[in-house]
Amino acid sequence: MIVIGVIYLLIMIMDFYPIIKHKKVKHLIINLMFIIPGLIFLFLAAKGIIVKSWITIIWEFLKSLGISY
């Protein structure tokens, strides 16, 4: 799984190369904003930890408010 993640990141060099070349700090920050949580998720997935489904979290929150069928 990590291997696949790394392959993907390698493909992303395509994007990073022009960013670094033109020193676009803003783009870099936004990219990292997505990549870092992505990496965290990747390691969680590789460890076999499946976080509760996002949609279920929403549902349980709504249920606690009493909004549900």
């Binding site: 994007d15 676009k24 936004i30 997505f34 992505g38 998720f41 499946i50 509760k52």
Partner: peptide, 21 residues
């Protein structure tokens, strides 16, 4: 927007795996 496409994709890819029961 081109330069952020793949990183958003990376997030989507990992999140789709981890955040789906």
């Amino acid at each position: 927007y081109k330069n952020i496409v793949l990183s958003v994709g990376f997030f989507l890819m990992t999140a789709a795996i981890v955040l789906s029961a």
